[in-house]
Design a protein around this nucleic acid. Structure first.
Length: 472
DNA sequence: TGGGGTTAT
DNA sequence: ATAACCC
């Protein structure tokens, strides 16, 4: 079923325009609530148009594309003993995200499970989606593997400039309007968001026709609201939020933890202050909040509680780091750790090779067994330049020195003479650079003399970080 | 709770 | 290097 098999019966446009001409909220005209909503609406409509695109049960979709026989069956994607996501067939039968395999099988004995511990195909498909969206606008920000924000402001402006004046009044929304709010085509903010919804529909259509992927979209004046509204109609549908309904959307959340940007820790701290719902946070003393969270976080999250979010869509570009991790019940010997580290490294080298850029820093992460929470420790160090140069073509020569480095990092964290119990190992390549090293600068002679024999091409500015880097 | 990612401190 | 956030 295509993207268009949804959203039957959008409200008739003429009716909409007519209703929108009525005075704002006739029923509660002059009420404090109406004045307040209008005030917030005005501050929020900074004139941006942002879309949040959210793929439906992404890993399960990728698996169903790989193996179409899975399409009509309840499907779960398994990592270790967890079902990390599942298709809608499985959801109908009671399977939830992050449910244990035991519970899932109990709920749904017919559940088909595929192993999703290797993220390669998901990652590749994820970047195909981002690249497709980048064709609409270069301002695409990734959030995880299955979500993207796109700033449509410029595209919308261009489309409106191409549009004859009299045709503005025949602009229609694609998909749902949050709250079923009437669109006022005499309101330029409404018109811009409506055009944004049309672009969002084109994006989803492109994802479906080119990649066979379905997903939701939310169109709103900022990232927070776009993200919140994208989930309102669920699977494979889209929703636009008009500023006047912003307060309804944000108050539809039952707890502040549901505000993106307020995580587990912050929510717990706020709960101690007696802040539980959005209204609590909106009306809480900013001074007290600043004392608790610091001025920056306090102001940011209180703004979030009003639906205000001035953060820009920051283009993600290529990844800043590559990592591979593995969890297990128990790793308690150095030899065992070495074997696992070699496996992680081997996969990583293939990825780094494919990317083309060179990592200049390597990091090892561990998690020690403890009944307590998942706390991790890490050690990192620069990758010696002669090892960096071996990366990319036949990475085989780089394996031994890198394993040596990783094992030094390992012994720096873990006293191998004492008993230990690890439950996670992770290797990360970061500090990625396009070429072997910098050029062009007064320091160049000193900086490159011991490095790169192949240095060419300017552009990459030198980062002072490189030299003072942490050593093990 | 998996196997990733990012930014701020 | 860690801690917080996101999926």
């Amino acid at each position: 079923m295509g993207v268009e098999a949804e959203e039957e019966g959008g409200p008739a446009e003429e009716e909409d325009a007519a209703r929108a001409m009525e005075p704002l909220d006739a029923g509660a005209a002059g009420s404090l609530r109406a004045v307040f909503d209008q005030g917030v609406a005005t501050r929020i409509s900074s004139s941006r148009v942002i879309v949040h695109v959210d793929l439906d049960c992404f890993y399960a979709q990728v698996e169903m594309i790989s193996n179409p026989e899975l399409k009509d069956k309840p499907l779960g994607v398994q990592q270790k003993y967890l079902v990390v996501t599942c298709n809608y067939e499985a959801r109908k039968l009671g399977v939830k995200k992050l449910m244990s395999v035991r519970d899932a099988k109990e709920k749904c004995p017919q559940l088909v499970l595929v192993n999703g511990e290797d993220l390669s195909r998901y990652r590749e498909m994820s970047y195909k989606v981002t690249e497709l969206l980048e064709e609409f606008s270069p301002l695409v920000e990734r959030l995880g593997f299955d979500e993207n924000f796109v700033d449509l402001t410029e595209m919308v402006e261009k489309r409106l400039q191409q549009l004859p004046r009299d045709e503005i009044l025949s602009v229609t929304v694609s998909g749902h309007v949050y709250n079923n709010q009437a669109v006022n085509l005499h309101n330029v903010t409404h018109v811009r968001l409506a055009v944004g919804s049309q672009i969002a529909a084109e994006m989803r259509e492109a994802m479906y026709s080119q990649l066979e992927l379905t997903g939701c979209a939310g169109v709103a004046p900022n990232k927070l609201l776009a993200k919140l509204v994208s989930g309102v109609f669920k699977p494979n549908q889209q929703t636009v939020l008009l500023p006047e309904s912003c307060q309804d959307l944000i108050h539809s959340l039952n707890h502040i933890k549901e505000i993106p940007g307020i995580g587990y820790k912050t929510a717990k701290r706020l709960e101690v202050l007696g802040i539980n719902c959005v209204l609590d946070l909106q009306t809480f003393s900013i001074k007290t909040l600043e004392k608790e969270l610091g001025i920056s976080a306090a102001q940011r999250i209180q703004k979030l509680s009003f639906g205000e979010d001035s953060s820009p869509v920051t283009p993600s570009g290529p990844p800043q780091s590559f990592s591979e991790e593995d969890t297990f019940k128990k790793c308690s010997s150095e030899a065992e750790a070495k074997t696992k580290i070699e496996e992680l490294l081997s996969s990583l080298l293939n990825r780094v090779c494919h990317d083309g850029r060179k990592p200049h820093t390597i990091r090892l992460v561990i998690r020690r067994y403890s009944p307590k929470h998942c706390h991790r420790e890490s050690r990192q160090c620069p990758i010696p330049s002669h090892v960096i140069q071996k990366l990319g073509t036949e990475n085989y020569d780089a394996v031994t020195p890198l394993v040596d480095i990783l094992m030094k990092l390992f012994r720096n964290m873990v006293n191998v003479k004492l008993p230990f119990h690890l439950t996670l190992l992770s290797v990360c390549f970061c500090n990625l650079k396009a070429l072997s090293t910098a050029k062009k600068g007064p320091m160049d002679f000193y900086l490159t003399s011991s490095l790169s024999t192949t240095a060419h091409s300017g552009k990459r500015s030198f980062k002072a970080k490189d030299t003072h880097n942490d050593d093990v």
